[in-house]
């Protein structure tokens, strides 16, 4: 009957002890790059978000609609991996909540982009530093349907340290429609 739920994929160090809540099948794996453990969130109703998470080599996922069920995961990651980075390709509301939570724990947003699909065209609106924004938006557009993979492969190198950002749009055809996703990267201020 209902078509849309929030699905979030999270992954973190395999050796973390997670007390899974009833109805959840939390999947765990580790993805480390440049010495930073990475916690990944993705919207599982979205094929693009799945491509993104899949590229980051996270074999497990959990499926539900309430980002609140992941607060423990978030807090545990922050506690056990204080220098770890957090990324995602999610619904806007999930990013908003996680960004707010992260900010209170000293994280800052170092990259974000909106990926909006209308009339079989995806528009990438990238917020980044002046010298990077257009390059990133163009790279995403040139990756056509594989933009989530490009994003996953490059996400940890997209961090910028200026809050003053440039926005750049780039468009490409898409087989999906009517989707609004946000990709993002949060890092602890001590890493900046």
């Amino acid at each position: 009957m209902l078509t849309r739920r929030t699905f979030i994929k999270s992954s973190l160090a395999t050796n973390l002890a997670i007390a899974a809540q009833p109805g959840l099948a939390l999947g765990l794996s580790q993805y480390a790059q440049e010495d930073h453990s990475l916690l990944i969130f993705s919207d599982e109703t979205s094929a693009q978000a799945q491509q993104f998470a899949g590229q980051l080599n996270t074999p497990h996922s959990n499926i539900e609609k309430d980002v609140g069920l992941h607060f423990d995961t978030f807090n545990r990651f922050h506690r056990e991996q204080p220098t770890g980075w957090i990324t995602g390709l999610t619904r806007d509301s999930d990013f908003f909540i996680l960004e707010q939570m992260a900010a209170t724990k000293g994280y800052r947003t170092v990259f974000s982009a909106i990926h909006e699909t209308n009339n079989n065209t995806v528009t990438h609106q990238v917020s980044s530093s002046v010298d990077k924004a257009h390059l990133i938006a163009d790279s995403l557009a040139q990756s056509l349907e594989n933009w989530p993979s490009w994003l996953a492969n490059n996400i940890t190198s997209l961090a910028h340290h200026e809050l003053a950002t440039a926005q750049a749009n780039s468009q490409a055809g898409s087989s999906t429609n009517n989707e609004y996703l946000v990709s993002w990267l949060l890092i602890p201020s001590t890493s900046a």
Binding site: M1, L2, R4, R5, T6, K65, D66, V67, G68, L69, R91, D92, S93, D94, F96, I97, I114, E116, Y180
Partner: peptide
């Protein structure tokens, strides 16, 4: 139904964040 499920939780005091889904009605 996500709308039903979160109301059922709220009416028995089970915390959740589902209502934020409303913000996805429009992008941003």
């Amino acid at each position: 139904d996500p709308g039903w499920d979160y109301r059922v939780k709220l009416m028995k005091g089970e915390p959740n964040m589902t209502e934020f889904s409303l913000l996805n009605w429009i992008g941003g």
